[in-house]
Write a protein that binds this DNA or RNA. Structure first.
Lengths: 190, 190
DNA sequence: ACCTGAACACCGTTCAAGT
DNA sequence: ACCTGAACACCGTTCAAGT
Protein backbone atom coordinates (compact mmCIF):
# COMPACT_ATOMS: atom_id res chain seq x y z
CA UNK A 1 0.00 0.00 0.00
CA UNK A 2 2.93 2.34 -0.59
CA UNK A 3 2.27 5.51 -2.59
CA UNK A 4 5.11 6.21 -4.91
CA UNK A 5 5.55 9.88 -4.24
CA UNK A 6 4.76 11.18 -0.76
CA UNK A 7 4.24 14.89 -0.61
CA UNK A 8 7.40 16.76 0.21
CA UNK A 9 6.02 18.34 3.39
CA UNK A 10 4.74 14.97 4.58
CA UNK A 11 8.15 13.42 4.15
CA UNK A 12 9.77 16.30 6.00
CA UNK A 13 7.30 16.07 8.87
CA UNK A 14 7.90 12.34 9.11
CA UNK A 15 11.62 12.84 9.39
CA UNK A 16 11.38 15.66 11.90
CA UNK A 17 8.99 13.63 14.04
CA UNK A 18 11.43 10.74 14.07
CA UNK A 19 14.41 12.85 14.97
CA UNK A 20 12.60 14.77 17.71
CA UNK A 21 11.14 11.56 19.07
CA UNK A 22 14.64 10.17 19.30
CA UNK A 23 15.76 13.18 21.32
CA UNK A 24 12.72 13.24 23.60
CA UNK A 25 12.74 9.50 24.26
CA UNK A 26 16.46 9.60 24.99
CA UNK A 27 15.87 12.36 27.54
CA UNK A 28 12.60 11.30 29.11
CA UNK A 29 12.05 7.69 28.14
CA UNK A 30 9.53 6.08 25.81
CA UNK A 31 6.66 7.18 28.07
CA UNK A 32 7.32 10.81 27.24
CA UNK A 33 4.44 12.95 26.09
CA UNK A 34 3.66 12.57 22.41
CA UNK A 35 2.39 16.11 22.45
CA UNK A 36 5.87 17.20 23.44
CA UNK A 37 7.30 15.32 20.47
CA UNK A 38 4.84 16.97 18.08
CA UNK A 39 5.47 20.37 19.61
CA UNK A 40 9.23 20.04 19.23
CA UNK A 41 8.81 18.82 15.67
CA UNK A 42 6.71 21.89 14.92
CA UNK A 43 3.60 20.01 13.84
CA UNK A 44 0.12 19.57 15.29
CA UNK A 45 -0.61 16.49 17.34
CA UNK A 46 -2.88 15.14 14.63
CA UNK A 47 0.03 15.06 12.21
CA UNK A 48 1.94 12.78 14.54
CA UNK A 49 -1.01 10.41 14.73
CA UNK A 50 -1.35 10.57 10.96
CA UNK A 51 2.13 9.17 10.54
CA UNK A 52 2.24 6.90 13.57
CA UNK A 53 -1.03 5.39 14.84
CA UNK A 54 0.42 4.75 18.27
CA UNK A 55 3.50 4.98 20.43
CA UNK A 56 4.78 1.53 19.52
CA UNK A 57 4.69 2.41 15.82
CA UNK A 58 6.78 5.50 16.48
CA UNK A 59 9.34 3.60 18.53
CA UNK A 60 9.32 0.81 15.95
CA UNK A 61 10.14 3.17 13.08
CA UNK A 62 12.86 4.71 15.20
CA UNK A 63 14.51 1.38 15.89
CA UNK A 64 14.37 0.18 12.32
CA UNK A 65 16.96 2.82 11.50
CA UNK A 66 18.95 2.60 14.71
CA UNK A 67 19.24 -1.17 14.68
CA UNK A 68 20.86 -1.68 11.30
CA UNK A 69 24.36 -1.36 12.66
CA UNK A 70 23.56 -3.56 15.65
CA UNK A 71 22.28 -6.37 13.46
CA UNK A 72 25.31 -6.21 11.21
CA UNK A 73 27.57 -6.60 14.22
CA UNK A 74 25.43 -9.50 15.30
CA UNK A 75 25.93 -11.26 11.99
CA UNK A 76 29.65 -10.71 12.28
CA UNK A 77 29.68 -12.30 15.71
CA UNK A 78 28.34 -15.49 14.17
CA UNK A 79 31.70 -15.86 12.48
CA UNK A 80 33.79 -15.05 15.56
CA UNK A 81 36.12 -17.81 16.72
CA UNK A 82 34.89 -18.26 20.31
CA UNK A 83 31.19 -19.09 20.31
CA UNK A 84 30.47 -18.44 23.99
CA UNK A 85 32.39 -15.19 24.01
CA UNK A 86 30.53 -14.05 20.91
CA UNK A 87 27.22 -14.78 22.62
CA UNK A 88 28.29 -12.79 25.63
CA UNK A 89 29.37 -9.87 23.49
CA UNK A 90 25.98 -9.92 21.71
CA UNK A 91 24.17 -9.77 25.02
CA UNK A 92 26.24 -6.80 26.19
CA UNK A 93 25.65 -4.99 22.92
CA UNK A 94 21.89 -5.40 22.99
CA UNK A 95 21.62 -4.49 26.66
CA UNK A 96 23.57 -1.29 26.14
CA UNK A 97 21.55 -0.51 23.06
CA UNK A 98 18.21 -1.17 24.73
CA UNK A 99 19.11 1.06 27.63
CA UNK A 100 19.30 4.08 25.34
CA UNK A 101 15.58 4.76 25.84
CA UNK A 102 14.17 4.19 29.30
CA UNK A 103 11.13 1.99 28.98
CA UNK A 104 12.27 0.24 25.83
CA UNK A 105 12.77 -3.11 27.55
CA UNK A 106 9.09 -3.13 28.52
CA UNK A 107 8.03 -2.40 24.94
CA UNK A 108 10.23 -5.24 23.74
CA UNK A 109 8.92 -7.68 26.28
CA UNK A 110 5.27 -6.80 25.81
CA UNK A 111 5.16 -7.72 22.14
CA UNK A 112 2.41 -7.28 19.53
CA UNK A 113 2.02 -7.73 15.81
CA UNK A 114 4.15 -4.74 15.14
CA UNK A 115 7.07 -3.29 13.38
CA UNK A 116 8.64 -3.08 16.81
CA UNK A 117 8.00 -6.77 17.17
CA UNK A 118 9.94 -7.28 13.94
CA UNK A 119 13.01 -5.85 15.65
CA UNK A 120 12.56 -8.32 18.46
CA UNK A 121 12.25 -11.20 16.02
CA UNK A 122 15.45 -10.25 14.26
CA UNK A 123 17.20 -9.89 17.60
CA UNK A 124 15.95 -13.23 18.80
CA UNK A 125 16.99 -14.83 15.53
CA UNK A 126 20.58 -13.76 15.91
CA UNK A 127 20.57 -14.81 19.56
CA UNK A 128 19.24 -18.23 18.65
CA UNK A 129 21.91 -18.85 16.07
CA UNK A 130 24.62 -17.74 18.49
CA UNK A 131 23.24 -20.10 21.10
CA UNK A 132 23.09 -23.03 18.72
CA UNK A 133 26.67 -22.50 17.69
CA UNK A 134 27.82 -22.31 21.31
CA UNK A 135 25.95 -25.51 22.13
CA UNK A 136 27.56 -27.31 19.21
CA UNK A 137 30.95 -26.13 20.40
CA UNK A 138 30.11 -27.57 23.82
CA UNK A 139 30.67 -24.15 25.38
CA UNK A 140 27.21 -23.78 26.94
CA UNK A 141 24.74 -26.28 28.32
CA UNK A 142 22.67 -28.10 25.74
CA UNK A 143 19.31 -26.92 27.05
CA UNK A 144 20.04 -23.20 26.67
CA UNK A 145 17.56 -21.46 24.39
CA UNK A 146 17.32 -18.25 22.46
CA UNK A 147 14.43 -17.31 24.69
CA UNK A 148 16.67 -17.55 27.74
CA UNK A 149 18.97 -15.05 26.11
CA UNK A 150 16.11 -12.76 25.14
CA UNK A 151 14.79 -12.87 28.69
CA UNK A 152 18.18 -12.06 30.15
CA UNK A 153 18.74 -9.18 27.78
CA UNK A 154 15.42 -7.59 28.65
CA UNK A 155 15.86 -8.15 32.37
CA UNK A 156 19.34 -6.66 32.28
CA UNK A 157 18.20 -3.68 30.22
CA UNK A 158 15.41 -3.07 32.71
CA UNK A 159 17.92 -3.30 35.55
CA UNK A 160 20.04 -0.66 33.88
CA UNK A 161 17.01 1.60 33.67
CA UNK A 162 15.99 1.11 37.27
CA UNK A 163 19.36 0.66 38.92
CA UNK A 164 23.02 1.02 38.16
CA UNK A 165 24.96 -0.23 35.16
CA UNK A 166 27.04 -2.21 37.66
CA UNK A 167 24.04 -4.15 38.91
CA UNK A 168 23.02 -5.00 35.36
CA UNK A 169 26.51 -6.14 34.47
CA UNK A 170 26.65 -8.28 37.57
CA UNK A 171 23.32 -9.91 36.67
CA UNK A 172 24.65 -10.74 33.22
CA UNK A 173 27.93 -12.03 34.65
CA UNK A 174 26.23 -14.40 37.04
CA UNK A 175 23.64 -15.62 34.56
CA UNK A 176 26.17 -16.18 31.82
CA UNK A 177 28.19 -18.22 34.30
CA UNK A 178 25.06 -20.32 34.67
CA UNK A 179 25.14 -20.91 30.91
CA UNK A 180 28.27 -23.05 31.33
CA UNK A 181 27.85 -26.76 30.78
CA UNK A 182 27.87 -28.99 33.87
CA UNK A 183 31.34 -30.02 35.06
CA UNK A 184 32.79 -32.86 33.06
CA UNK A 185 33.01 -35.96 35.24
CA UNK A 186 36.35 -37.10 33.90
CA UNK A 187 38.84 -35.93 31.35
CA UNK A 188 39.91 -38.46 28.75
CA UNK A 189 43.61 -39.30 29.11
CA UNK A 190 45.78 -38.35 26.21
CA UNK B 1 3.74 12.87 65.60
CA UNK B 2 1.07 10.25 66.22
CA UNK B 3 -2.25 11.38 67.64
CA UNK B 4 -3.55 8.97 70.20
CA UNK B 5 -7.13 8.73 69.04
CA UNK B 6 -7.85 9.05 65.33
CA UNK B 7 -11.44 9.83 64.55
CA UNK B 8 -13.51 6.76 63.90
CA UNK B 9 -14.48 7.72 60.35
CA UNK B 10 -10.88 8.56 59.51
CA UNK B 11 -9.75 5.15 60.67
CA UNK B 12 -12.48 3.47 58.64
CA UNK B 13 -11.62 5.44 55.52
CA UNK B 14 -7.98 4.53 55.94
CA UNK B 15 -8.81 0.85 56.13
CA UNK B 16 -11.18 0.90 53.20
CA UNK B 17 -8.67 2.77 51.09
CA UNK B 18 -6.05 0.14 51.86
CA UNK B 19 -8.31 -2.75 51.06
CA UNK B 20 -9.64 -1.26 47.83
CA UNK B 21 -6.13 -0.28 46.79
CA UNK B 22 -5.09 -3.88 47.27
CA UNK B 23 -7.88 -5.05 44.99
CA UNK B 24 -7.32 -2.40 42.32
CA UNK B 25 -3.53 -2.82 42.26
CA UNK B 26 -3.92 -6.59 42.06
CA UNK B 27 -6.21 -6.18 39.06
CA UNK B 28 -4.62 -3.29 37.21
CA UNK B 29 -1.14 -2.88 38.65
CA UNK B 30 0.36 -0.15 40.81
CA UNK B 31 -0.10 2.40 38.03
CA UNK B 32 -3.86 2.16 38.37
CA UNK B 33 -5.86 5.35 38.72
CA UNK B 34 -5.91 6.65 42.30
CA UNK B 35 -9.28 8.16 41.53
CA UNK B 36 -10.56 4.66 40.90
CA UNK B 37 -9.26 3.58 44.29
CA UNK B 38 -10.97 6.50 46.02
CA UNK B 39 -14.18 5.90 44.09
CA UNK B 40 -14.29 2.24 45.06
CA UNK B 41 -13.53 3.11 48.66
CA UNK B 42 -16.45 5.53 48.63
CA UNK B 43 -14.44 8.63 49.52
CA UNK B 44 -13.46 11.79 47.69
CA UNK B 45 -10.07 11.94 46.03
CA UNK B 46 -8.89 14.52 48.57
CA UNK B 47 -9.43 12.00 51.36
CA UNK B 48 -7.06 9.59 49.70
CA UNK B 49 -4.41 12.27 49.46
CA UNK B 50 -5.05 13.21 53.08
CA UNK B 51 -4.08 9.74 54.20
CA UNK B 52 -1.43 8.98 51.60
CA UNK B 53 0.55 11.87 50.14
CA UNK B 54 1.53 9.87 47.08
CA UNK B 55 1.30 6.51 45.37
CA UNK B 56 4.44 5.13 46.98
CA UNK B 57 3.06 5.86 50.45
CA UNK B 58 -0.10 3.93 49.63
CA UNK B 59 1.81 0.96 48.30
CA UNK B 60 4.18 1.15 51.24
CA UNK B 61 1.39 0.98 53.80
CA UNK B 62 -0.11 -1.90 51.88
CA UNK B 63 3.10 -3.88 51.94
CA UNK B 64 3.79 -3.30 55.60
CA UNK B 65 0.84 -5.52 56.37
CA UNK B 66 1.28 -7.97 53.53
CA UNK B 67 4.96 -8.57 54.18
CA UNK B 68 4.82 -9.69 57.79
CA UNK B 69 4.34 -13.31 56.90
CA UNK B 70 6.99 -13.17 54.21
CA UNK B 71 9.58 -11.78 56.60
CA UNK B 72 8.80 -14.41 59.20
CA UNK B 73 9.37 -17.12 56.63
CA UNK B 74 12.61 -15.39 55.72
CA UNK B 75 13.81 -15.51 59.31
CA UNK B 76 12.93 -19.19 59.48
CA UNK B 77 14.98 -19.85 56.37
CA UNK B 78 18.04 -18.55 58.18
CA UNK B 79 17.84 -21.64 60.37
CA UNK B 80 17.26 -24.10 57.54
CA UNK B 81 19.90 -26.80 57.15
CA UNK B 82 20.97 -26.20 53.54
CA UNK B 83 22.17 -22.61 53.16
CA UNK B 84 22.13 -22.42 49.37
CA UNK B 85 18.73 -24.06 49.12
CA UNK B 86 17.35 -21.66 51.68
CA UNK B 87 18.65 -18.72 49.65
CA UNK B 88 17.03 -20.09 46.55
CA UNK B 89 13.73 -20.58 48.36
CA UNK B 90 13.86 -16.99 49.61
CA UNK B 91 14.38 -15.70 46.09
CA UNK B 92 11.41 -17.69 44.79
CA UNK B 93 9.20 -16.46 47.61
CA UNK B 94 10.01 -12.81 47.08
CA UNK B 95 9.66 -13.04 43.31
CA UNK B 96 6.23 -14.62 43.60
CA UNK B 97 5.23 -12.09 46.20
CA UNK B 98 6.48 -9.11 44.21
CA UNK B 99 4.61 -10.27 41.14
CA UNK B 100 1.27 -9.88 42.95
CA UNK B 101 1.07 -6.25 41.83
CA UNK B 102 2.26 -5.45 38.35
CA UNK B 103 4.67 -2.55 38.57
CA UNK B 104 5.84 -3.32 42.09
CA UNK B 105 9.32 -4.33 40.98
CA UNK B 106 9.84 -0.87 39.50
CA UNK B 107 8.73 0.78 42.74
CA UNK B 108 11.15 -1.42 44.68
CA UNK B 109 14.03 -0.72 42.38
CA UNK B 110 13.47 3.02 42.15
CA UNK B 111 13.88 3.64 45.88
CA UNK B 112 13.36 6.80 47.96
CA UNK B 113 13.31 7.73 51.63
CA UNK B 114 10.06 5.96 52.14
CA UNK B 115 8.08 3.45 54.06
CA UNK B 116 8.21 1.40 50.88
CA UNK B 117 11.95 1.68 51.01
CA UNK B 118 11.82 0.23 54.51
CA UNK B 119 10.32 -2.93 53.08
CA UNK B 120 13.21 -3.14 50.63
CA UNK B 121 15.73 -2.66 53.42
CA UNK B 122 14.23 -5.48 55.44
CA UNK B 123 14.14 -7.69 52.37
CA UNK B 124 17.73 -6.89 51.53
CA UNK B 125 18.74 -7.56 55.13
CA UNK B 126 17.37 -11.06 55.10
CA UNK B 127 18.91 -11.71 51.70
CA UNK B 128 22.30 -10.51 52.92
CA UNK B 129 22.28 -12.81 55.92
CA UNK B 130 21.24 -15.74 53.77
CA UNK B 131 24.08 -14.98 51.38
CA UNK B 132 26.65 -14.70 54.17
CA UNK B 133 25.61 -18.03 55.58
CA UNK B 134 25.82 -19.69 52.17
CA UNK B 135 29.28 -18.23 51.60
CA UNK B 136 30.49 -19.49 54.97
CA UNK B 137 29.13 -22.94 54.10
CA UNK B 138 31.11 -22.77 50.86
CA UNK B 139 27.92 -23.27 48.89
CA UNK B 140 28.13 -20.09 46.82
CA UNK B 141 31.03 -18.07 45.49
CA UNK B 142 32.66 -15.78 48.03
CA UNK B 143 32.02 -12.58 46.08
CA UNK B 144 28.25 -12.96 45.98
CA UNK B 145 26.46 -10.01 47.59
CA UNK B 146 23.04 -9.22 48.95
CA UNK B 147 22.73 -6.64 46.20
CA UNK B 148 23.18 -9.35 43.57
CA UNK B 149 20.25 -11.17 45.11
CA UNK B 150 18.14 -8.02 45.30
CA UNK B 151 18.88 -7.27 41.65
CA UNK B 152 17.96 -10.78 40.58
CA UNK B 153 14.71 -10.73 42.53
CA UNK B 154 13.61 -7.48 40.96
CA UNK B 155 14.66 -8.54 37.48
CA UNK B 156 12.80 -11.82 37.82
CA UNK B 157 9.70 -10.16 39.22
CA UNK B 158 9.73 -7.75 36.31
CA UNK B 159 10.13 -10.66 33.91
CA UNK B 160 7.07 -12.30 35.43
CA UNK B 161 5.13 -9.10 34.87
CA UNK B 162 6.21 -8.69 31.27
CA UNK B 163 6.54 -12.30 30.24
CA UNK B 164 5.72 -15.75 31.42
CA UNK B 165 6.33 -17.31 34.81
CA UNK B 166 8.41 -19.89 32.97
CA UNK B 167 10.81 -17.30 31.62
CA UNK B 168 11.23 -15.81 35.07
CA UNK B 169 11.90 -19.19 36.62
CA UNK B 170 14.42 -19.96 33.95
CA UNK B 171 16.22 -16.68 34.60
CA UNK B 172 16.42 -17.51 38.29
CA UNK B 173 17.58 -21.07 37.56
CA UNK B 174 20.41 -19.95 35.35
CA UNK B 175 21.51 -17.11 37.59
CA UNK B 176 21.43 -19.23 40.72
CA UNK B 177 23.58 -21.74 38.89
CA UNK B 178 26.03 -18.89 38.41
CA UNK B 179 26.09 -18.44 42.19
CA UNK B 180 27.92 -21.76 42.56
CA UNK B 181 31.54 -21.57 43.62
CA UNK B 182 34.18 -22.25 40.95
CA UNK B 183 35.00 -25.92 40.49
CA UNK B 184 37.37 -27.28 43.09
CA UNK B 185 40.70 -28.14 41.50
CA UNK B 186 41.22 -31.35 43.45
CA UNK B 187 39.41 -33.31 46.08
CA UNK B 188 41.39 -34.26 49.16
CA UNK B 189 41.86 -38.04 49.43
CA UNK B 190 40.29 -39.73 52.40
C1' DA C 1 -3.22 13.87 0.32
C1' DC C 2 -2.08 15.84 4.23
C1' DC C 3 -2.42 19.13 8.11
C1' DT C 4 -4.74 21.67 11.86
C1' DG C 5 -6.46 22.17 16.32
C1' DA C 6 -10.71 21.97 18.88
C1' DA C 7 -13.14 18.46 21.43
C1' DC C 8 -13.74 14.70 24.56
C1' DA C 9 -12.34 11.69 28.19
C1' DC C 10 -9.38 10.86 31.82
C1' DC C 11 -6.01 11.54 35.40
C1' DG C 12 -2.74 13.66 39.28
C1' DT C 13 -2.64 17.03 42.65
C1' DT C 14 -3.99 21.05 45.42
C1' DC C 15 -6.76 23.69 48.43
C1' DA C 16 -10.67 26.69 50.00
C1' DA C 17 -14.81 25.65 52.02
C1' DG C 18 -17.40 22.89 54.79
C1' DT C 19 -18.72 19.73 59.09
C1' DA D 1 -9.54 16.95 62.73
C1' DC D 2 -11.10 15.38 58.77
C1' DC D 3 -13.79 15.36 54.43
C1' DT D 4 -15.51 17.27 50.04
C1' DG D 5 -15.21 18.33 45.37
C1' DA D 6 -14.23 22.09 42.26
C1' DA D 7 -10.17 23.81 39.96
C1' DC D 8 -5.99 23.61 37.39
C1' DA D 9 -2.65 21.45 34.50
C1' DC D 10 -1.63 17.91 31.52
C1' DC D 11 -2.13 14.08 28.36
C1' DG D 12 -4.00 10.43 24.71
C1' DT D 13 -6.85 10.09 20.91
C1' DT D 14 -10.26 11.31 17.39
C1' DC D 15 -12.17 13.79 13.65
C1' DA D 16 -14.51 17.63 11.09
C1' DA D 17 -12.78 21.32 8.70
C1' DG D 18 -9.44 23.26 6.07
C1' DT D 19 -5.59 23.67 2.20
Amino acid sequence: VSTRKPRADARRNYERLLSEADAVFAEQGTDASLEAVARRAGVAIGTLYGHFPNRRALVGALLRERNEELFETGEDLLAAPQAAQALRRWIDLVVTHAASYQGLAALFADGAEDELHESCVRMTGIGERLVRRAIEAGEVRADLTGEDVFTLMNAAAWTREHGTAGQAERLVDLTVRGFSPPERTARAPR
